[in-house]
Design a binder for these strands. Structure first.
Length: 569
RNA sequence: CGGGGCAUAGCGCAGCUUGGUAGCGCAUCUGCUUUGGGAGCAGAGGGUCGCAGGUUCAAAUCCUGCUGCCCCGACCA
């Protein structure tokens, strides 16, 4: 490709709206342009990257025996009503009506459509297992689209759905997809981690997320320093302390905290560490009006864990101020676990605090030097909080570290969730009708592009991982317009490289060298060749790698073989 | 959904307080010079100042409503 026919749309100034580095660079390098909130046009240069990502995914899915198909983006409401998700899904589901006033949605995912397809097409166990996939646009009406294509409303996703006669088969394909995903992200040249996850709205049991590690990631991942354990922070477990509970050393007293309501204020007022304070949160109970959850002051409630407790009403919700007052006799800010008429559940860590401070259920009062068992009964304990750095790993090996990541893949074992609701059955060996087991496996294709930049950039711009760079080689002639000899040589070289199978971008603009260098670095082409008259005289061409590791001169003779060595390295 | 902010040339912004001829940088076009790290000079084109009302002799500027977009929050005892 020549820049005269493949115009670069680079911009020097950083767009005002862009917050994170990948978004800024994607706009500056001319990969995407915004159409409306969360909607982006992929420009020719950006699309080349997107296609390369797609192709790697496609190759690995095909290699794993999955079958590609393509389902519509617009889906009839009936299918969603059948799976009951029409009612479950909130405003994130974009609902539309056609001219006949029939209801549809723009698909945020395709479980319903594929399950409908499978129940029509699959009738025998002999056709199983089978794994269908597509690379298709999705639309999710995000509350707050941001960070460019990282959290866009419309995005490209690879989604696969497998069908099985039994759980063992589902498990087998799940394991295979786990391996396939690892292979895909490895081939894409990304630093990633597979982590245990919550399955969220898609439903089902076992699920594993794949995260590209990046500072700006929206998810926190906890992993063990000494084992393979890795989990989304939402799911990372804390374990009961093995040590004995510390013993009381002081006598309980009621202290004045006239205006101190938050843990921070109370701790400061009493000149104590927040770790010595316990906070009590009141949430709606499943049976009782409310349940008190007690946490150490420096810890934060994990709502997903709390919602799973049988005593707690789902979905988790906090009771309002009037109810707090009615139940405890005190407004929020002074609530404590002593003498409450509702169930009290304490986090494991909250039980390990002696001489603690807690609300006294009276305005302006807290208890100090309270102790479990001595001053109030030992409550039921549970894992209620988010893990923090340094917590012991739940598998008992090492301690937890926390890093941030961008979720780019998620694999689930759905089981019968959709197949049962939609009656997707096949006949088994005994001629008996059996509900199929399902797995589902997603990759955010557009998000991968942003994540790759997030992980690979410098002051000059993008430094693409080689497998997904829009071009492999930038060929830059110096003052070609002034020298016919140089023009001939460069054009010859270009043809030679293209014929050898390289993806080459020849900058044949009549631009100054500085402009060409800056543009090629911004768009992140991994290999740069510079040819000048002087170089021609010497029979040498300058080679520099975008990552800055190599900067040298190569003899022009036999250049394709030399490059093949460098590039395929 | 709650709070804050912004909307003026393709992009980034000033002008608005105190109403009166719409401006700067980048980009674009023309010419000349320049050419190994985002060139210089000279010139040119480009705007219903987000939309709709209102006040006024006069509105980008003041008032009201609407729309779009951005940011923060949605953890709290």
């Amino acid at each position: 490709m020549r820049t005269s026919q493949f115009p670069l749309s680079t911009i020097k100034e950083t767009p005002a709206d862009a917050e994170i580095i990948s978004h800024k660079l994607m706009l500056r390098a001319g990969l995407i342009r915004r159409l409306a909130a969360g909607l982006y046009t992929w420009m020719p240069l950006g699309l080349r990257v997107l296609r390369k990502v797609e192709n790697i995914i496609r190759e690995e899915m095909d290699r794993a025996g999955a079958l590609e198909l393509l389902m519509p983006t617009v889906q009839p409401a009936e299918l969603w009503q059948e799976s009951t998700r029409w009612a479950q899904y909130g405003p994130e589901l974009l609902r539309i009506k056609d001219r006949h006033d029939r209801e549809y949605c723009y698909g945020p995912t395709h479980e319903e459509v594929i399950t409908d397809y499978a129940r029509r097409e699959l009738s025998s166990y002999k056709q199983l297992p089978v794994n269908f996939y597509q690379i298709q646009l999705k639309f999710r009406d995000e509350v707050r689209p941001r960070f460019g294509v990282m959290r866009a409303r419309e995005f490209l996703m690879k989604d696969a759905y497998s069908f099985h006669i039994d759980q063992a088969s589902m498990q087998q394909t799940f394991n295979q997809m786990h391996a396939t995903y690892s292979q895909i992200f490895t081939r894409l040249g990304l630093k990633f981690r597979a982590v245990a996850a919550d399955s969220g709205a898609i439903g089902g049991n076992t699920s594993v997320e794949f995260h590209v590690l990046a500072e700006s990631g929206e998810d926190a991942i906890a992993f063990s320093t000494a084992s393979d354990y890795a989990a989304n922070l939402e799911l990372a477990a804390t374990i009961p302390a093995s040590d004995k509970r510390p013993t009381a050393t002081a006598k309980t007293k009621l202290v004045d905290t006239p205006t101190q309501k938050t843990i921070e204020e109370v701790a400061k007022h009493l000149k104590l560490d927040a770790k010595r304070c316990l906070k009590t949160l009141l949430v709606k109970g499943a049976e009782q009006e409310a349940v008190a959850l007690v946490l150490r002051g420096d810890h934060s409630l994990n709502e997903i864990k709390a919602a799973k407790l049988p005593e707690v009403a789902q979905p988790l919700s906090f009771i309002d101020d009037d109810q707090i007052k009615a139940l405890t006799g005190s407004p929020a800010g002074f609530i404590g676990p002593k003498d409450l008429a509702i169930p009290v559940i304490a986090d494991y860590a909250a039980l390990q605090v002696a001489d603690f401070v807690c609300g006294a259920n009276q305005v302006g009062k807290h208890w100090q030097d309270m102790n479990w068992e001595r001053d109030l009964p030992l409550p039921k304990s549970a894992d209620l909080r988010n893990v923090v750095e340094g917590d012991p790993s739940p598998d008992g090996k090492g301690t937890l570290q926390i890093v941030r990541g961008v979720e780019v893949g998620h694999i689930f074992q759905l089981g019968e969730k959709y197949s049962k609701a939609m009656n997707a059955t096949v006949l088994d060996e005994d001629g008996k009708s059996v509900v199929m087991q399902m797995g589902c496996y997603g990759i955010g294709v557009t998000r991968i592009v942003a994540a790759a930049i997030e992980q690979n950039n410098d002051a000059q711009g993008i430094v693409w991982p080689k497998p997904i760079a829009p071009f492999q080689i930038a060929l830059l002639p110096i003052n070609m317009h002034k020298s016919q000899r140089l023009a001939d040589a460069v054009n010859g070289l270009y043809t030679q490289l293209v014929d050898a199978g390289f993806d080459v971008l020849l900058d044949d603009r009549q631009a100054r060298p500085g402009v060409m260098f800056a543009d090629m670095e911004l768009i992140g082409i991994p290999h740069r060749l510079v040819l000048s008259e002087k170089g021609l005289d010497e029979g040498m061409i300058e080679y520099k790698s975008r990552d800055g590791n190599v900067d040298t001169k190569l003899p022009l003779d036999n250049i394709t073989d030399q490059l093949r060595g460098i590039i395929l390295d």
